[in-house]
């Protein structure tokens, strides 16, 4: 029964997969190992566990006000994610449910705006924030992203799968439009919200260019900015940078794993 050619094919497939997974895991391995080595050892290419982990962590905490910076990043990412999901999902829902010629045009125009690169918006946006007195203020980072065209588009697409019958039934039961949204739509679309949360949280957590431009003092900086400023200089301490990078990666991993379970839950819920 066992075809030798088939076996060979399988073996080859697995070989390629193993090599590919090693390649993708290696940077993480290198990151973890690097955090335990001194900068000088990292430069020499040492790839086994060293004894400098505690030193690196202590230096990181000594050089950077870690709790404050961490709080800044968390505050921005959580607030922005919450507000973005609220505003953009409402908009996406409305564009799909309450259609009209004019709204289609507006939506088309918005999609076109997706093609404008941020670099072109940066300086006008900075001037605007300057006039609002929001330079060096976390609100300057949170506010511009709340009405996210991409997330609006995403929710509009997802809303197409939202059963009209549910809406009709809710209306017959006497629910108002906003009640339909919060009590019917929101729970049903849990999986969509979970996926959007991952996307928006990651975008905000990793956001670099705009916070860099608009934040001016050390006490306002986010973790991404701190990692970048550690990397500067004529003699960067790579051990500390590795530790900082681990700190910057952890929340994303946690969010992902937590929401991944929700994600599956949501899928099961919608099948029932």
């Amino acid at each position: 029964m066992k075809n030798p050619l088939y076996l060979l094919q399988r073996a080859l497939t697995y070989l390629v997969l193993i090599v590919a997974s090693l390649l993708s895991v290696f940077p993480f391995f290198w990151l973890l190992v690097g955090a335990t080595n001194t900068s000088a050892d990292i430069i020499k290419g040492k790839a086994d566990i060293g004894g400098a982990l505690i030193d690196n962590i202590l230096t990181f905490f000594e050089r950077v006000d870690v709790p404050l910076v961490f709080w800044n990043s968390i505050y921005i990412a959580v607030t922005a994610t919450f507000l973005t999901l609220l505003v953009s999902s409402l908009a996406g829902y409305a564009f799909e449910i309450f259609r009209s010629q004019v709204r289609e045009r507006i939506f088309g125009g918005m999609l076109l705006m997706l093609s404008i690169p941020f670099a072109a918006l940066m300086i006008p946006l900075f001037t605007m924030m300057g006039r609002l007195g929001l330079i060096n203020n976390h609100l300057a980072i949170i506010l511009p992203g709340i009405a996210s065209i991409f997330i609006i588009f995403y929710f509009r697409q997802a809303t197409k799968a939202f059963p009209r019958e549910l809406r009709d039934a809710a209306r017959i039961d006497g629910l108002k439009e906003w009640q339909i949204f919060f009590y019917i739509y929101l729970p049903v679309m849990r999986s969509t919200y979970a996926a959007a949360t991952i996307i928006v949280f990651m975008l905000n957590w990793n956001n670099y260019l705009w916070p860099l431009i608009v934040l001016q003092t050390n006490d306002k900086k986010t973790l991404t900015l701190v990692v970048s400023s550690l990397l500067s200089g004529y003699y960067p301490d790579f051990g500390v940078i590795m530790v900082a990078t681990i700190f910057a990666t952890l929340p994303i991993l946690i969010i992902f794993f937590v929401l991944q379970r929700r994600f599956v839950e949501g899928m099961l819920g919608s099948i029932k």
């Binding site: 300086i123 260019l209 860099l212 431009i213 001016q216 050390n218 900015l225 970048s228 990397l231």
Partner: peptide, 14 residues
């Protein structure tokens, strides 16, 4: 206030 060198340049430019 310390930023990376390229970052200082970008901030100043913008």
């Amino acid at each position: 206030v310390d930023f990376a060198k390229a970052d200082v340049e970008q901030k100043l430019q913008a």
